[in-house]
Amino acid sequence: MLIIHTALHGEARALINHFSLKRQHDMNAFACFRADNIFLIESGIGKTNTASAIGWACGMLNVSSPVMLNIGMAGHTACSIGECYIANRIEDHATQHRYYPPQLVDTPLGSDCLLTLDRPTENYPEKCMVDMEASAFMQAAIRFTTIELCQSIKVISDNTLKPAGRMKDSEVESLLAPHTEAVTGLASDLGQYRAELMDNTGATFSQLTQQWHFTKYQQQQLARLLQRHQALQPDEELIDTIPAWIDSGKAFMRWLDGHLNNLPVRL
């Protein structure tokens, strides 16, 4: 699952077109768009809007370790309008708290530091981008996923020669549109990392918990037993090997534990 956050509708528009996302009319708290495993939420400008949107989306979607991207505009003292960067350090100007999203993916995009401000500015700090959302995005996002899967991508929309001003949606969209391919590549690589973290014993777990009763604690034990089984007997279809005499969850766990403990230790 990929969750994309934008502040402005112009930013969203470039991605809605690129990913063929459909407006979710039953969701009123924020403007949301979706296609298969991609969910886009448009929060409005600023940290509070961003944190609320991320919390709301992640709570509602309830997926484990999603890939999360904050995509938007940023200012910079010297970079040219239209250049696109991944933030390698995000600092909240008000709290001075910093996040360092690990740069694990090879991407054609450059990387730069990013400072998140509470208000727009024309006094650009030296050597970093400025925006109004990224620190709140990171703070909220890492409650729901691991920081490697959270990234902030910024297109330079203003600089000392062309200070920030009101931009039309179409202008924002055209700044972001040339970079949507790079965004897709990044999202896809992060998606592969995410897949490595996923547990694929879920179907067997569901089957067993429907068949027998397991307490919450037993469910944790069962999940670990299934992982052990998968590690040691990856080719064995567990459900087919359960002896007929097993009549409860507890008996099943005792049997599987014994079965695994008796296997010869081969790495």
Partner: peptide
């Protein structure tokens, strides 16, 4: 010291 990070993923491109 950040809690929400993954040692395994970071091993792919260590810093």
């Amino acid at each position: 010291n950040l809690k929400a990070q993954n040692f395994r993923l970071q091993k792919k491109q260590p810093a």
